[in-house]
């Protein structure tokens, strides 16, 4: 049975930015009629001002933006022709015919031996689903030694969700290998989907901005931290770890308020939780965890950490917690 090691990872966001004030105005002008409860205290209390701006692709051409990230990730580590599996975890980017951009990437990499999959159904936790899928393939069959995961997300429609998040564009990629010098091992990924919440926030981001905010607040938020708490503790139990054994927790970039909530819910210390880089990015779907892996690497945290936990949630409604050992 092959182990799954993380060999390299990277991300890239576009250079063009839109300030949050502008996005807020677009929301008020064009989308606020589609939101069911503008009187909610959340609209008033969580301003999202910490985000400042998000990056956006101009003249977007699906499948072209992520290539430079993939090339950085593959450099000297693997050739496209050596890839055994490619998984697209993009949430909102598709080709004109509605298909994943995976096969276009496969062609560009000349990865003729790779099986190509797409796992966008987990919304913003699709990255975690991709990790779990890759790990399952690598453990089940020795043939899968070199696995590339990538995403490229380009938002169409509303980017500003009051009190919750601001959506930015971006691309990310990660190379998983069974034979590598890397010591960063993907050990565990636990996912949970509460299908009955699909009507509240389903698997497809609504392009018209019909965000059922009140439903979200009523049905998902009461359970959000509880499910994360349960999955987090399940991962700890699975791996005979205690909370104090966790050196670094990476989370998705929704809002500073959400980070504070997670810290309290899991009773994390200030040192354990890495506050993600969202100031100029906003929330970049499945790329958030990789953005924060890069950000914590820049700060020298990731290399020092022995036990790293990554946490995401997303459409479905779904939650996931993964454990990486260094």
């Amino acid at each position: 049975m092959n182990n799954t090691y993380i060999t390299s990872f990277d991300y890239q966001v576009p250079i063009d930015k839109i300030p949050i004030a502008e996005l807020r105005q677009v929301f008020i002008d064009d989308f606020s009629d589609h939101v069911d409860d503008l009187e909610s205290p959340k609209f008033q209390n969580i301003t999202l001002d910490e985000i400042e701006a998000v990056s956006v692709y101009q003249n977007y051409n699906p499948g072209t933006e992520v290539i430079s990230v993939i090339e950085k990730v593959l450099t000297d580590k693997s050739d496209g022709r050596e890839l055994d599996l490619i998984i697209d975890y993009s949430v909102v980017s598709k080709l004109e015919n509605g298909l994943s951009i995976g096969n276009k990437i496969q062609e560009q990499l000349n990865a003729r031996n790779a099986l190509v999959l797409s796992v966008g159904n987990g919304g913003c936790l699709s990255f975690m689903l991709a990790l779990k899928t890759a790990q399952a393939f690598m453990q089940a069959n020795d043939q899968y030694k070199n696995v590339l995961l990538f995403s490229e997300d380009h938002v169409i429609g509303n980017r500003y969700n009051p009190g919750l998040n601001v959506l930015g564009d971006g691309a990310s990629a990660i190379l998983l290998q069974s034979e590598t010098d890397s010591t960063m091992q993907l050990v565990d990924v636990e996912c949970y989907n509460m299908g009955r919440l699909n009507p509240v926030l389903g698997v497809r981001h609504d392009l018209k901005g019909n965000f059922k905010y009140k439903e979200f607040e009523n049905k998902i938020q009461p359970l959000h931290y509880k499910v994360i708490y349960d999955l987090f503790n399940k991962v700890l139990r699975n791996n005979s770890l205690k909370i104090e054994d966790i050196d670094l927790v990476l989370y998705q970039n929704m809002s500073h308020n959400d980070y504070v909530g997670l810290k309290s819910a899991l009773q994390l210390s200030e040192d354990q939780l890495h506050y993600g880089k969202m100031k100029g990015h906003g929330h970049v779907f499945g790329s958030d965890i990789i953005i924060n892996m890069c950000h914590s690497t820049e700060q020298g945290k990731l290399e020092k950490a022995k036990n790293i936990v990554a946490i995401s949630s997303g459409a479905g409604f779904s939650w996931a917690v993964s454990l990486i050992k260094n």
Partner: peptide, 20 residues
């Protein structure tokens, strides 16, 4: 939202409700 989480866990533990 946080105290709701601990209250849910209290109810789960003391009354056996399965919030899943």
């Amino acid at each position: 939202s946080l105290s709701m989480m601990t209250l849910i866990m209290f109810i789960e533990k003391n009354y056996g409700l399965d919030f899943y």
